[in-house]
């Protein structure tokens, strides 16, 4: 490399970009826009892996529902649709707040953006709180997943007579459990993003992290949009 006189990484065609080099721009990207688009495509690809992860559970649900429709109808009676509906509304609202936070950062209103992110985390916590109450009311009556399924108590006793009822609750707990895990991860990520936004790391020029956290959060919401009617209502 002795003859190497020009170490400039960018080709001649992008000299315009060259003068302006914001600190968030990593050296292997030519422009901020390319970096943002790349990150976003990567996130969408990650989201479809998430969708396919959940698809396995949806397949299990579809197969067992098709085999044992009466069991699913009977067992889903024991789930409280009020909790389900409230949780749906909570998650939808949190999706709105996260979308608003992106709207505000695009207009450089950092404070409003942070408030909306924090509201999202708060709503997610409400969701998990309601989920906790629901789980506890099931565990109290011995409604555990799979092999530990031992229903007792006024509203649950009849389940012991329903064949394959334990399958329904296995699927219920696995689906909502893995969804809940995603909610917890989302809370962590959004809180972390909110912290950096508060410290002024983001602006309308550069808000990739908020955008990606928002995409992830919407996906968590979408999964719940499907889980809610499938498990609680029909």
């Amino acid at each position: 490399m002795a003859t190497d006189t020009d170490p400039a990484p960018a080709p001649a065609t992008t000299d315009v970009e060259h003068d302006y080099h914001p600190e968030h721009l990593q050296h292997h990207f030519v422009s901020s826009e390319q970096q943002f688009d790349s990150a976003k495509l990567g996130m969408w690809l990650f989201l479809i892996t998430e969708v396919l992860l959940f698809s396995g559970m949806f397949v299990a649900y579809a197969v067992y529902r098709q085999w044992h429709p009466e069991t699913f109808a009977a067992a889903s009676q024991t789930l409280d649709p009020v909790f389900g509906t409230v949780n749906t509304l909570v998650l939808l609202t949190s999706s709105l707040t996260v979308a608003l936070s992106i709207h505000y950062i695009q207009h450089d209103e950092v404070k409003k953006c942070v408030y909306n992110l924090l509201a999202t985390v708060g709503l997610a916590a409400v969701f998990m709180g309601i989920k906790y109450v629901e789980y506890m009311s099931k565990f109290e009556h011995g409604v555990f997943p799979g092999g530990f399924f031992d229903p007792h108590g006024a509203h649950y006793e009849f389940l012991a007579q329903v064949p394959y009822a334990s399958q329904f609750f296995s699927i219920y707990f696995v689906m909502t459990g893995i969804h809940g895990l995603h909610v917890l991860i989302g809370m962590g990520v959004i809180a972390w993003v909110a912290y950096y936004a508060w410290k002024g790391a983001f602006s309308s020029e550069y808000y990739t992290h908020i955008e990606l956290a928002g995409l992830y959060w919407h996906l968590v919401d979408i999964v719940w949009i499907f889980l809610f009617p499938m498990l609680y209502l029909i």
Partner: peptide, 29 residues
């Protein structure tokens, strides 16, 4: 949610294609 909150409506078409292929695979499965 996908079209408006996630702004896929006005986004780069390749992101939409990605998401579409993902959902097609789920229905295939």
């Amino acid at each position: 949610v996908v079209l408006f909150f996630m702004a896929l409506k006005d986004d780069n078409p390749v992101n939409g294609l990605t998401f579409t292929i993902g959902t097609i695979m789920v229905s295939v499965f």
